[in-house]
């Protein structure tokens, strides 16, 4: 499952980051390393971007960025 598909209010765990280069680095810097728990908090009116709780901070990611994060649902 991809992070971009995680419904609001649900929790997942990062399995892998599937891109490379700057976007990958950025996601890792934001704390999205394998094993990290992540919860979808809100969705903007157009559905993009989504707001997530990542290691205690609220971070908004665009759908195309979030689709580079493979997760495992925990619910």
């Amino acid at each position: 499952m991809l992070l971009s598909q995680l419904p609001v209010g649900k929790t997942g765990e990062v399995v892998a980051i599937t891109c490379s280069g700057l976007v990958r680095r950025r996601l890792l810097d934001l704390g999205l390393v394998p094993g990290t728990k992540i919860r979808t908090l809100r969705q903007s009116p157009g559905g993009d971007p989504l707001a997530f709780n990542i290691r205690g901070a609220v971070i908004a990611l665009r759908l195309d960025t979030a689709s580079h994060v493979k997760i495992r649902s925990l619910d």
Partner: peptide, 11 residues
């Protein structure tokens, strides 16, 4: 660093 989410600040 933020004491309430220290881990994410250590990067």
């Amino acid at each position: 660093a933020d004491a309430t989410c220290l881990e994410r600040n250590l990067n």
